[in-house]
Design a binder for these strands. Structure first.
Length: 427
RNA sequence: GGAGAGAUGGCAGAGUGGUCGAAUGCACUGGUCUUGAAAACCAGCAGGCCAGCAAUGGUCUCCAGGGUUCGAAUCCCUGUCUCUCCGCCA
């Protein structure tokens, strides 16, 4: 969330920003609530002062005094109640206000992103390419039917060499991240709702993507971003030796309510997957550079897998609440090709997201109360947080098998993974 | 699952009804001393909110939420977590 003081002082800028991001928040109501809250607080504080002074008297208080104090007490209680109401409403509104937007972020709808880089033209195969689902089913490495039987649709079993490939991808990602100074951490797959909200996810409401545990204050996490952020909740962390960098392994759960169409095929959009996620806590003046660093590491990982991809600067309306700026890497995938073109030998795929890195400034840190001690000002200040996908075991395998398939349906393993596997192809 | 003990500032740790937002030590910040550093000494040092240009003042917070009381870190209830013992178990 943003600092209420900042909103108070820059209401027009905030309204403008909400418009850019296509987010509907009633800033006027928010400001009015803030004002009402402050007014109540002033009255309340005055009464509290009377009470405190009244109770400082030594010796036995007189009956009149006791009577008066009780009256003040009752008034305070009433004011406290209305104060709490206002504050709750204010907090709710505040949670809806999205983060500020980076000056270079393209302003516009989802499709109005800016392509920053394309590594290579996707290789034109001289045969009819198959999508990953077809390939993996053929090799008996994936079982959606039994996944549906046991859990429900869009759940699956991973088998044999695909499990090994996934392990190899994970270890490959871990090694690169550790080389860059990231600490390996494996997180819980559940968290309190408060933590989810702090990360900017909404466990309640109709459009929620979150699985909730019945009768418990727990949700299944959609990403390790949530649990790593929560790891340092309500802490003052030491950033004197540089940023704190984690590479976190967790399962991810998403309800994916209302997602259909081409992108619901195979592994692209599933309810449960495993992900290796980078997460950084840093000082405010470091976050822009670190965001570039995270992107560079993601590119290093994808480069090693010899995948055609592009890097895009996500458009303002597609940033979500917490992100100030977001870069995605989109890999070329057969499955995203236009079905009408399917007969053509050179049937083309399309680009689909495989990683995403966001700079959230102090938006998440403010909600989670994570600070560092700034030596220059001798003050405790909110840290900046960033996250980025290292490896995700739903979409990485898609891009891998679709791009490295051979005419006979076998799959070539890129060199970078050879040290992690005892086979060089799947056939 | 049962029984007991506990949760206090960045950390350690006192405090069991008013003079306590809280001793003391460590850490941290500034200074004196020193060629420099260390040590020693002096001073400062929790956070949120509100009013104020500021100095400053007020208020809230001693795990969380309720309660008792003129007055709660301190007493009572509920919850969460931690530790010790017993039971059970991958």
């Amino acid at each position: 969330m943003l600092d209420i003081k900042y909103i108070r002082e820059n209401p027009e800028l905030i309204k403008e920003n909400c418009k850019k991001r296509h987010v509907q928040v009633d800033i006027d109501t928010l400001l009015q609530t803030d004002e009402e809250r402050r007014e109540i607080q002033q009255n309340l504080n005055q009464l509290q002062q009377e009470r405190n002074q009244g109770s400082k008297l030594k010796g036995k208080p007189s009956p009149e005094h006791i009577e008066k104090m009780k009256k003040i007490g009752a008034e305070i209680k009433q004011l406290e109640e209305s104060y709490n109401q206002k504050e709750e409403l204010l907090h709710e509104l505040l949670l809806q206000v999205p983060n500020l937007t980076h000056p270079e972020t393209p302003i516009g709808h989802e499709h109005e992103f800016k392509t920053l880089y394309t590594n290579q033209e996707p290789e034109l195969k001289d045969f009819q390419t198959k999508d990953h689902e077809e390939l993996l089913l053929k090799h008996d490495l994936l079982d959606f039917e039994r996944g549906a039987k046991v859990v429900g649709s869009k759940f699956f079993y991973t088998k044999g060499k695909l499990v090994e490939l996934n392990r190899a991808l994970t270890n490959y990602g871990i090694d690169i991240c550790q080389k860059h100074g990231f600490q390996l951490i494996e997180t819980p797959d559940l968290a309190h709702k408060k933590i989810l909200e702090g990360a900017g996810f909404n466990p309640r409401g109709e459009e929620t993507q979150i699985y909730n545990i019945e009768n418990q204050d727990l949700s299944l996490v959609g990403t390790a971003e949530i649990t790593v952020l929560g790891y340092h909740a309500d802490e003052v962390i030491d950033l004197e030796d540089g940023p704190i960098k984690y590479v976190a392994l967790s399962h991810c759960f998403r309800t994916e309510a209302g997602s259909y169409g081409r992108t619901s095929k195979g592994l692209y959009r599933v309810h449960q997957f495993t992900k290796l996620e980078m997460f950084v806590f840093c000082k405010p003046n470091q976050s822009d550079q670190i965001h570039q660093d995270l992107l560079a590491i993601e590119q290093e990982i994808v480069d090693g897998l010899e995948l055609p991809y592009r890097v895009i600067d996500i458009a303002s309306s597609d940033l979500g609440g917490p992100a100030y700026r977001k870069f995605d890497i989109e890999a070329y995938m057969t499955m995203l090709g236009d079905p009408d073109e399917k007969d053509k030998i050179h049937q083309q795929g399309n680009y689909g997201e495989i990683t995403s890195t966001s700079n959230c400034l102090d938006y998440q840190a403010r909600r989670m109360n994570i600070k560092f001690h700034n030596k220059e000002t001798n003050q405790k200040e909110f840290v900046h947080t960033l996250n980025g996908t290292a490896v995700v075991l739903s979409r990485f395998p898609i891009a891998l098998v679709e791009n490295h398939q051979l005419p006979d349906g076998s799959i070539k393993i890129p060199k970078a993974l050879h040290p992690y596997l005892n086979f060089k192809e799947i056939k």
